[in-house]
Design a protein around this nucleic acid. Structure first.
Lengths: 108, 108
DNA sequence: CCTATATAAAACTTTCTGGTTATGAAACTA
DNA sequence: TAGTTTCATAACCAGAAAGTTTTATATAGG
């Protein structure tokens, strides 16, 4: 059917997991190795490696090489596509929030 | 683990499917029945019903009642949560786009 | 050369997803 | 009352996702 940009599928899917969102949040502070990224989670290292692969396929991280380490770096460009898609609905939710505001004002 | 709002999981997951994004786009134009929503797709009606249930659980649609019809209406509020989360990365992608712009300028 | 560290890859299990067909319920229509 | 439309539900299936443990590979450092 292909009605929207193909890459939105993988970007939104990548964002649908809390572990992966946490990894992205962590990477906002700068590069990190796999072990560093895995540390906050009570999950095996291969599991984290899999999450990283999902993020990589979505274009949300790139990986360098530092000896035996494979440092991960955030690549935020695909998030722009996602945000652009969502922006089209800003009016819709703002309208309903305004409606709510009006209601609350009336109650006062 | 629960590091981010629980509802982002279901919202992003709902958005990860092109059929569901198309349905939301359609609903921006106003209410629609299940049959109307199913019409553009070469997919069975139960398949569409399932997609609608996913959207409903994510809070992205609400359903009314008109005789035997169950009209769907867009509910955009959850998209605000998703957008808010993404906004935190705006700086990151804008920086890289600026970097690209600079590069293109140099090439000129 | 040997060992420890960092990561990937393989094999497996369980659960989720997205589709199907078949059936059923509710409400309109003749 | 009988038939049609609209939609949901159930049962099923194939493939993807998310985790596990185990094994392999590359590199650093004594």
């Amino acid at each position: 059917m292909k009605l929207e940009g193909y890459e939105l599928d993988s970007v939104f899917a990548a964002l649908a997991d809390p572990t992966r969102r946490a990894i992205l949040t962590r990477l906002k502070a700068g590069e990190a190795t796999v072990t560093e990224l895995a540390e906050p989670f009570q999950m095996s290292q291969p599991a984290i490696s899999k999450h990283l692969k999902v993020l990589e396929r979505a274009g949300l991280i790139t990986r360098g090489r530092d000896a035996q380490r494979r440092p991960c770096r955030l690549r935020a460009e695909p998030l722009k596509a996602a945000t652009d898609w969502l922006e089209r609905y800003r009016q819709d939710w703002e309208v309903s929030f305004r409606r709510l505001d009006g209601l609350l004002d009336e109650l006062k």
